[in-house]
Amino acid sequence: MRAEVLMYDGIAEMDALLTFDVLARARLMGVDVSPVLVTPDGSPEVTGCYGTRFGGLVRWDPSRADALLVAGGWDVDVIEASSLPARLRAYKEQAGPRLLLGGIDSGAVLFGAAGLIDGRPATTYRFDMEYLAKWADVIDARIVDDGDLVTSGSGWLAGLDLALYLVAERLGAPHVAVEIEGRIGHDRRGTVWRR
């Protein structure tokens, strides 16, 4: 699985990097996953919501990606002041139905603004649930798995939860997920909602 973790100006640093870290560790442990930090426009650098600068990024590639994992950040600002929602919609159209969308915490809000989850079950950061309800059927669960859409709304550790879920359930390596949990001192818990 080529898992593209989207980076953009205003992203919540921890959400994106925790997801990337778990998937990179799983790859080192023999799981068939290739996490890549990407930008929609090929910009090699972005600045996170707390001012952290990230470099060495590559342009996203919907023709090669199996999953697009999107974290939140300063969502309202990003939605109202950028073309990111429209770009997300175009990316999904190019990639087609095989693409797994992963919403990390309030990343689900960006999918909503892009028109990618209309009426579908999803979860998000607790403080964004009312906002997400404009587009989605909000489920109060730690993970919501709706086939080609998996969202995690567990707060600041949502990146860990989403990535561990993908390793165990989508990549067929629950033993690796358990070992990574032990290494990072974080156990999966809470409700998983599946259609």
Rank of each mutant, 00 (worst) to 15 (best):
A3T: 07
L6W: 10
A12K: 11
E13C: 02
A16Q: 08
A16P: 00
L18G: 09
T19Y: 15
D21I: 10
V22C: 06
A24T: 02
A24E: 05
R27M: 09
G30P: 02
D32N: 12
S34Q: 14
P35C: 10
V38R: 09
V38A: 05
V38E: 06
T39P: 08
P40V: 14
D41G: 03
E45P: 03
E45K: 12
G48S: 14
C49I: 05
C49A: 14
G51M: 05
T52G: 01
F54I: 14
G55H: 01
L57D: 01
R59S: 07
S63C: 03
D66Y: 10
V70P: 03
G72W: 14
D77H: 12
I79M: 11
I79A: 10
S82R: 01
S82L: 00
S83H: 11
L84R: 05
L84C: 01
A86R: 14
L88T: 08
A90M: 01
K92E: 04
K92G: 00
R98H: 15
L99M: 00
D105C: 15
G107R: 03
G107F: 05
A108D: 00
G112K: 11
L116D: 04
I117G: 10
D118C: 01
R120W: 12
P121F: 05
A122S: 11
A122Y: 10
T124L: 07
Y125L: 04
R126C: 01
F127L: 00
Y131W: 12
A133N: 13
K134W: 10
A136V: 02
D137G: 05
V138W: 05
I139F: 08
D140N: 14
D140F: 07
R142W: 13
R142I: 06
I143R: 06
I143E: 11
V144A: 04
D145T: 05
D148F: 03
L149I: 14
W156E: 02
W156G: 03
L157H: 09
D161A: 07
L162V: 11
L162N: 14
L162S: 12
A163K: 07
R170C: 00
L171C: 07
G172T: 08
G172I: 11
A173P: 08
H175L: 11
A177I: 05
E181P: 07
G182F: 13
G182P: 09
G182V: 07
G185D: 03
G185Y: 12
G185N: 13
D187K: 15
D187I: 08
R189D: 12
V192R: 06
V192W: 08
R194T: 12
R194S: 12
